[in-house]
């Protein structure tokens, strides 16, 4: 990554600023300010801030971390945005992060990790965590197609990407809960969905954040090889949570990954070299 150059002149971006959209940010902050870094959770496509509000927000806060979750435009309680692009989502994340009282740790899940990777080039995050990252490649797409052809194929033609409960959760999660979560899933903008496959790769991060990658070897959306590749980009190895589905924040054993993230942050990872 460090071989890429930082881009200074961005005439197009300056000339065509992103249109703002009302954002939903859910927050759970600790009762006592302990001086810990705020966390900003960024859900993947189809999910909203609600996905983190189920368990992770309050758990992080109980361990002293101010915890916030954003709904990308067009998701959850944020403004509808059928024409959203990856750039719009990146804008939403950078805006939400810069709006927090202190330099934040960005935590992206699924395709939200891709959005976080873009945001890292525009906001010097204190650190970043990529959970079951869908950084977007034809390989990931192929896996999804093999595992869930009916849900995935329409996305190629601009339709809705449907993830089923077998892809998202382990069998340990009670059926009722799984059904409730799947029912809440929405959809990402068609252009953004397409850009996940075809769009430009993220520019190098500013502010030299250290990056943690974690996921499950049994994730039926993100294959293990993709996890390893993602971690290698950031010069590390993935932390693995066998037996869990793609939605680590909602699955039955949601507590383990979040605890691992918070432990890692408590060690206060030093900025990456370079």
């Amino acid at each position: 990554m460090s071989a890429e150059r930082v881009r200074i002149v961005r005439s197009w971006e300056w000339a065509r600023p992103e249109r703002p959209a009302r954002r939903e940010v859910l927050a759970v902050v600790p009762e006592l300010e302990e001086g810990k870094r705020p966390l900003l959770f960024v859900p993947g496509f189809g999910h909203g801030a609600w996905a983190f509000a189920e368990h992770w927000l309050s758990h992080a806060a109980s361990r002293g971390f101010p915890a916030y979750a954003l709904s990308l435009r067009g998701h959850g309680g944020s403004e509808p945005a059928p024409a959203a692009t990856l750039r719009s989502y990146t804008h939403d994340v950078v805006q939400a992060a810069a709006g927090l009282p202190r330099q934040a740790v960005l935590v992206g899940h699924g395709a939200g990790a891709r959005v976080v990777a873009h945001a890292l080039a525009r906001y010097p995050a204190r650190a970043a965590v990529l959970v079951a990252p869908v950084l977007g490649s034809w390989g990931t797409f192929g896996t999804a197609l093999r595992r869930n052809p009916v849900g995935t194929l329409p996305a190629v033609f601009g339709g809705r990407l449907r993830l089923n409960r077998r892809q998202l959760f382990s069998r340990e999660l009670p059926d009722g809960e799984a059904r409730r979560y799947v029912a809440r899933l929405g959809r990402a903008g068609r252009r953004a969905q397409w850009q996940l496959l075809t769009g430009g790769q993220p520019e190098p991060a500013v502010g030299r954040p250290s990056v943690l990658v974690l996921g499950s070897p049994d994730d039926r959306v993100v294959p293990s090889a993709a996890l390893t590749r993602a971690a290698r980009r950031y010069a590390s190895a993935p932390l693995l949570f066998p037996g869990m589905g793609h939605d680590l924040m909602l699955d039955a054993r949601w507590r383990e990954p979040i605890d691992a993230i918070l432990d890692w942050l408590e060690k206060d990872p030093a900025p990456a070299a370079g």
Binding site: I8, P17, P20, H91, Q95, A98, P101, R102, Q103, R122
Partner: peptide
């Protein structure tokens, strides 16, 4: 370039907004 002003601010903010922007920048990055 790495700390945008709030996107609900006007195109041409007032000087008091600029000051609050710098105060937030100072607090955000300690």
């Amino acid at each position: 370039p790495d700390f945008p002003m709030p996107d609900d601010w006007p195109d041409y903010p007032h000087h008091t907004q600029l000051l609050s922007y710098f105060e937030r920048y100072a607090d955000h990055f300690d």
